[in-house]
Computed example of a mutant assay.
Amino acid sequence: MPTEVRKKARDLMSGFCKVCPVCDGRACKGQVPGMGGTGTGSSFFANMESLAKVKLNMRTIHHNVNPDTSVEIFGQKLSVPVMVGPMTGSTYNMGGKVSENDFAKYVVEGSLKAKSFAMTGDGADPTMYESGLEAIKEFGGGIPIIKPRSNEEILKKIKQAEVAGAVAVGVDIDGAGLITMALKGQPVGPKTKEELKELVQSTDLPFILKGIMTVEEAEMAVEIGAKAIVVSNHGGRVLDFCPGAADVLPAIAEKVKGKVTIFADGGVRTGMDVLKMLALGADCVLIGRPFVTQAFGGGAEGVENHYIAIRNQLFQAMILTGCGSTREINGAVVYK
Rank of each mutant, 00 (worst) to 15 (best):
101 N>A: 15
101 N>H: 14
101 N>E: 15
102 D>L: 15
102 D>E: 15
103 F>D: 01
103 F>Q: 04
104 A>H: 07
105 K>H: 09
106 Y>E: 02
108 V>P: 04
108 V>Y: 00
109 E>S: 03
109 E>T: 04
109 E>D: 07
110 G>E: 04
111 S>M: 06
112 L>N: 01
113 K>S: 10
115 K>P: 04
116 S>N: 03
116 S>G: 12
117 F>N: 07
117 F>Q: 09
118 A>D: 10
120 T>W: 08
120 T>E: 08
120 T>K: 03
123 G>H: 13
124 A>T: 13
124 A>L: 12
127 T>Q: 11
127 T>Y: 11
128 M>H: 14
129 Y>M: 15
130 E>A: 15
131 S>G: 12
132 G>N: 08
132 G>F: 12
134 E>F: 12
134 E>N: 13
136 I>V: 13
138 E>Y: 12
139 F>K: 04
139 F>Q: 06
140 G>L: 03
141 G>D: 05
142 G>C: 02
143 I>G: 13
144 P>M: 13
145 I>K: 06
145 I>T: 14
146 I>V: 13
147 K>S: 08
147 K>N: 05
148 P>D: 06
149 R>Q: 11
150 S>G: 06
150 S>Q: 01
152 E>V: 10
152 E>S: 08
152 E>T: 08
154 I>W: 02
154 I>R: 05
156 K>F: 05
156 K>Q: 09
158 I>C: 05
158 I>P: 00
158 I>Y: 08
158 I>G: 03
158 I>N: 00
159 K>E: 09
159 K>Y: 06
159 K>P: 00
159 K>I: 07
160 Q>M: 15
160 Q>I: 07
162 E>I: 11
162 E>P: 10
165 G>E: 06
166 A>M: 09
166 A>F: 11
169 V>C: 14
